[in-house]
Design a protein around this nucleic acid. Structure first.
Length: 1117
RNA sequence: GGGCUCGUAGCUCAGCUGGUUAGAGCGCGUCCCUGAUAAGGACGAGGUCGGCUGUUCGAAUCAGCCCGGGCCCA
């Protein structure tokens, strides 16, 4: 049995992932990872509850993979990271979904159908797609505790919410007020913004300029000119708004004076004869009073004094109208908000049915749309209309009945967030937002323009508002639980639910805190006469989700909830998409700030990673109706979870919207996961062939060696280099993850994978192929070979740990095969970096082997293993090789053909010795016999001396362009000579001597034309293209080896299969085969090489190399 | 209309507090390598860094205005 399970490179990723998923399930690895960290500090994660009444889409995948990454990472860093799932179950979307399903339309239908069955349907529908969600969660490897999820309709959750609302009520932060909502006068119901969006239509409305006479009209004949497209709101006018920082003109028309924005005088007046007599800023108008157009509204005592005055408002624009806006707080959101701020009364002269109220004289009972015409006529008759036009604009209509909507101030319950918004803003400032601009940008602005939270909904399926009101409305009380209710005087109706349940045992017990059963509970009012009844509304479901920090534990009612809550408050980390700024992010922050005065900010979350939208290939929002929707389950089934995860981590920062497509996922997979799997597979193939066993316990071969390979200083450059890269990557990734920089850490991982595959392995292959020299493995070559194994082994094992939070399946697959399989027996050691740095893998320090990589510690970087100088050297060497290949390509000289020498000219001649230290790697990579260095190499190269702008700029400022020119004009070779000998040079610039030292310039070299050469920043590489018969023969031999290898592949021979080999062909071919016989046999694992004959029964292959023709014969031994 | 955000190669995106030859991957073209083989590598073409104006010795980077896309709100 091989030490390592051979890697099936044709294996589909999803199959391998399914195996790992099964392993996690069998061993309950997630729970183990929690148990393992028992007693350690807790790192708190809050799950933003999704609604499960729709199928998950790709955006949910992004959210979930980001939510999964950091808890996994923090767990490996030694924290205990409980992850309680949650479900958002209330709200209008659920009701609408059920309405659709039942073919109902509007509240009337629901009442007819029956609230009880409707609510039951809502509850059932909530988990309609639960199976899909759980499937997705499991498939993408999102570790979260689904069994212990919080559910917003559960009794304990609802009672927690009640408790919090009672607290707000007691602090006078919960009150009854008005809110302007788009309503359908026919259906008599408010519409959600989503519904409004469905019904926009272009209509033509009258647009009128109306004059509001100033209070002193009799004396001054002055009035304010305002514009509106809704004449029916004019009787309900309560104020006028101007822009404070804009000029307003007094315009004389006839014997009257009109006040209007100076900038709009010409467009409004047109041909009308007029004269501007004076102008003043808008701020000067503020506070002036005027006479109402229709004096129908009487108002309560003292109310009339508050109405009909000029206010300043930000929203006044000079695009249309007269620069003065008519304000009807009952029929406009801006109007209402301004009215609240300025203390204007809410004048309601239109009923919810759209008809003018009885107060309206002759107009009483008119439908608002029909009233427009007559109202205008009335104004004109009374000389209050300047002019009338028509205005085409989009206007919302009811998507059900097509009636024009009216914006209507309705009664409702509000949270007085505006009172505490300063504290909310302070709290927000302490939160770490990613990207940062959310804090003061989108979210900060939102907070700055905060209005009170409209909490109540006149619907059925939601947390009931726990306010009980006396019949005359004089007493109000908030209730925090059923128990609280039960203690009320003269309570009745608590048994309503029990009775219902007795009649229908299928009734879910959690429904006892819901409508309509809870509405049956009444009790005696403090006056001892009236009954206290619950106000009928339910609450906004966003309040539910914002309550999760405490409500998920049933705090404060549930036993032990105080501890649970305090331990998990505030959260270290949350993450959701950008659309949650006004949703969950706000509800969390607002509730926490209002409820927990004494908690030090920030709370209830410290860090928030805000995610962008997942778009289609063209960058457009995905939607099922557009047909550009990509089903994540399809990609999970084909490409696999890790590919999907890696795509989201590595394609861009998570807050930029990503273009999601199968092609893009495959690309990400190819670049990283496939490359990694190839390296892993390579290791397994050769480790198995050579019997490399990290446990050291299998057979005598490794007993004599110190397990873990030679100490670092004794290993070769390549090994030390890749281990240095590994440890640098380790610290880089740790640091970036600590900073929540997903994209940055993914790039680091990508880069290491590239280095490992394209350079370390590429250059080390020979060490893996090479046979052992001696049984005792004491030969230097054998020690070096063992080092190669240990080095690659350590890279793979550590890398598996590094990538574990990102691609948990792949990571564990590597771990299971590379670590668990050979080392997993009881008592066997687990690789752990030493702290001495003497050896990087020190098996003496091994402890128990975790069953899964996710139970391991995240790797620490050993600073002693990091060798920055070596890293720079290797970068230069890689550049040289790249340049050399460039030359070969240009000269059409295959790498197989050996060349006599390469001449290197380094930009920095001091690096000669360093590069010479890598001579062997260079010789092999470029396939040359000799590496030479040319110091004064003017025949090949020319120099270019440029200023180091950063230094020169700071020092010489505006002299810089002249210095640049002077350096350009000077003889570059001469300058270089100067710098080489003196370390500085003197330039004549602007009649002054400027002394430049070595650091202040940058000397680069370029290859001269006409040579087989190529140049980069660090070096020029010149190839000796002169071919000798010996070189050509060797090249030919390599061609032969290549053909033989291809033949081996055709025969599908095992890597270690030995063969007998025959070569018969042209005289030159046979001659080369003889001359390089040993080399050919070694490279192709041929025990025997016959030249010039072709034994019977051997498999033959025609060859054609360098225009020589022949036949190869192979026979497996 | 307001706020936020983005605009860099055919495509997807990097590019920190300004430093003069703007990078990567994919795609395309030309090759190479192959005992990792339904992989891998090199090279090349391709860019007015959305536009304009300014600040500066120097701008993809900073400021202002404009144009265009996206999101949120009205």
């Amino acid at each position: 049995m091989p030490v390592f399970e051979p890697v099936d490179t044709s294996l589909k990723f999803p199959e391998a992932e399914a195996k790992i998923a099964a392993l996690w399930k069998d061993q309950d690895v997630f729970q183990q990872s929690l148990k393992l960290r028992e007693g350690r500090p807790t790192w708190v994660f809050y799950e933003g509850p999704p609604t499960a009444n729709g199928r998950p889409h790709p955006g949910h995948v992004l959210t979930r993979v980001v939510k999964d990454l950091f808890p996994r990472y923090k767990t490996m860093r030694g924290f205990r990271v409980p992850r309680k799932a949650g479900w958002d179950t209330h709200g209008l979307p659920v009701e609408i979904e059920v309405e659709k399903e039942l073919g109902l339309s509007g509240k009337g239908d629901i009442e007819k159908y029956g609230v009880i069955p409707f609510v039951r349907k809502c509850m059932e529908s909530v988990f309609k797609y639960t199976a899909d969600w759980e499937n997705l969660t499991e498939k993408i490897g999102f570790w979260i505790d689904l069994k212990d999820a919080y559910v917003t309709y559960h009794q304990s959750y609802v009672e927690s919410v009640w408790w919090s609302l009672k607290k707000l009520f007691e602090k006078d932060l919960l009150y009854k007020g008005h809110k302007v909502l788009p309503c359908c006068p026919r259906c008599q119901t408010a519409l959600s913004s989503h519904e409004v969006g469905l019904g926009y239509k272009d209509v033509e409305d009258p647009s009128v300029f109306v004059t509001f006479r100033a209070e002193d009209w009799e004396a001054s004949k002055t009035s304010f000119l305002a514009w509106t497209t809704t004449p029916w709101t004019l009787p309900s006018n309560a104020g006028l708004a101007v822009k404070a920082d804009t000029e307003y003109a007094h315009v004389k028309v006839g014997d009257e004076t009109l006040i209007m924005a100076a900038a709009l005088v010409e467009p409004v007046m047109g041909k009308l004869k007029h004269e501007v007599v004076k102008s003043e800023p808008g701020s000067a108008l503020v506070g002036r009073r005027y006479l109402p157009l229709f004096d129908w509204w009487k108002g309560a005592p003292g109310e009339r004094e508050k109405a009909w005055k000029v206010c300043a408002a930000e929203f006044v624009t000079l695009d249309t109208g007269a620069g003065i806006v008519h304000i009807a707080p009952a029929y406009g959101a801006d109007d209402y908000a301004l009215g609240q701020r300025e203390g204007l009364p809410v004048i309601h002269l239109v009923g919810p049915d759209g008809r003018l109220k009885p107060d309206c004289g002759a107009f009483a009972g008119a439908y608002f749309k029909d009233a427009d015409k007559d109202l205008i006529k009335d104004l004109r008759d009374r000389g209050l209309l300047l002019k009338r036009e028509n205005y085409k604009h989009p206007y919302p209509h009811c998507w059900r009945c097509d009636a024009a909507l009216i914006l209507y101030a309705r009664e409702g319950w509000f949270i007085r967030t505006t009172r505490e918004i300063g504290r909310v803003i302070e709290n927000n400032k302490k939160i770490q937002w990613l990207p940062e601009h959310i804090r003061d940008g989108r979210f900060g602005n939102f907070l700055e323009t905060n209005i009170d939270w409209a909490l109540s909904r006149e619907r059925y399926w939601g947390t009931p508002l726990p306010i009980w009101v006396s019949e005359d409305g004089a007493h109000m009380e908030a209730v925090e639980s059923l128990k609280d209710l039960a203690g009320k005087p003269g309570v009745e109706g608590l048994d309503a639910f029990e009775k219902a349940q007795a009649a229908d045992p299928g009734l879910n017990t959690h429904l006892r805190v819901h409508k309509p059963w809870i509405d049956a509970v009444t009790y005696l009012a403090p006056d001892g006469k009236q009954r206290m009844k619950r106000t009928p509304e339910v609450i906004d479901c966003w309040y539910d989700s914002g309550a999760m920090p405490f409500a998920q534990w049933g705090y404060p009612h549930a036993q032990g909830s105080l501890d649970q809550f305090t331990q998990a408050f505030p959260a270290d980390f949350i993450s959701e998409a950008i659309d949650q700024t006004r949703g969950w992010f706000y509800s969390l922050l607002a509730e926490s700030t209002l409820l927990f005065d004494s908690a030090p900010p920030p709370h209830p979350f410290k860090t928030c990673v805000v995610l962008g939208h997942v778009c289609d290939e063209k960058g457009e929002k995905m939607s099922k109706s557009k047909g550009n929707y990509i089903d994540p389950f399809g990609i999970l089934a084909e490409e696999g979870a890790d590919a999907l995860r890696w795509f989201f981590y590595s394609s861009n920062h998570p807050w930029t919207s990503s273009r999601f497509s199968r092609g893009n996922v495959r690309e990400a997979q190819k670049e990283f996961l496939l490359k990694l799997r190839n390296v892993y597979s390579f290791f397994v193939i050769y480790a198995n062939i050579d019997g490399f066993d990290p446990s050291g316990g299998r057979g005598p071969d490794f007993q004599r060696y110190r397990r873990g390979g030679r100490p670092l200083p004794e290993r070769g450059q390549l090994d030390r280099w890749i281990l240095s890269e590994l440890h640098q990557t380790t610290s880089g990734v740790r640091q970036r993850l600590d900073d929540y920089d997903i994209y940055g850490s993914a790039q680091q991982l990508n880069a290491f994978c590239e280095s490992l595959s394209n350079w370390y392995l590429q250059r080390s292959r020979e060490r893996f192929w090479r046979p052992w020299r001696g049984e005792d493995r004491l030969h230097d070559d054998d020690k070096d070979k063992l080092d190669a194994y240990w080095t690659l082994f350590e890279c793979l094992v550590n890398f598996a740990k590094l990538i574990a939070p990102f691609v948990p399946f792949t990571a564990d697959e590597l771990w299971q095969n590379l670590v668990r399989r050979p080392l997993g027996n009881a008592g066997a050691p687990v690789p752990k970096p030493s702290d001495s740095g003497a050896t990087v893998v020190n098996l003496d320090k091994f402890a128990r082997v975790p069953e899964s990589v996710h139970l391991a510690d995240y790797p620490t970087a050993d600073p002693q293993a990091v060798d920055c100088a070596l890293g720079e050297e290797m970068a230069l060497v890689r550049e040289i090789v790249s340049l050399g290949r460039n030359v070969r390509a240009a000269q059409k000289l295959k790498v197989r053909l050996p060349l006599a020498k390469v001449v290197l000219v380094l930009a920095d001649a001091e690096k000669t010795d360093i590069v010479r230290g890598h001579e062997e790697v260079l010789r092999e990579a470029l396939n040359v016999k000799q590496v030479e260095f040319a110091r004064m190499a003017e025949q090949y190269v020319s120099y270019k001396v440029q200023p180091n702008f950063k230094l020169i700029g700071a020092k010489y400022r505006d002299l810089v362009p002249k210095i640049k020119q002077a350096l350009k004009d000077a003889n570059a070779s001469h300058l270089k000579g100067k710098f080489d000998s003196d370390g500085c040079c003197v330039l004549r610039v602007d009649q002054k001597d400027v002394l430049l030292n070595q650091e202040e310039v940058e000397i680069t070299i370029q290859a001269k034309e006409g040579y087989a050469a190529a140049g980069g920043r660090g070096a020029v590489v010149v190839l000796d293209t002169h071919l000798t018969p010996e070189l050509e023969a060797e090249g030919f031999a390599r061609e032969l080896v290549n053909r033989i290898q291809n033949a081996r592949k055709d025969l599908d021979l095992k890597y270690e299969q030995r063969i007998n080999l025959a070569v018969k062909g042209s005289p030159r071919m046979e001659e080369v085969a003889r001359a390089f016989g040993e080399y050919i046999r070694r490279e192709t694992l041929a025990t025997e090489l016959r030249v010039g004959e072709m034994p019977e029964g051997w498999r033959t292959f025609d060859v054609d190399a360098e225009k020589e023709i022949g036949t190869l014969g192979l026979l497996a031994e």
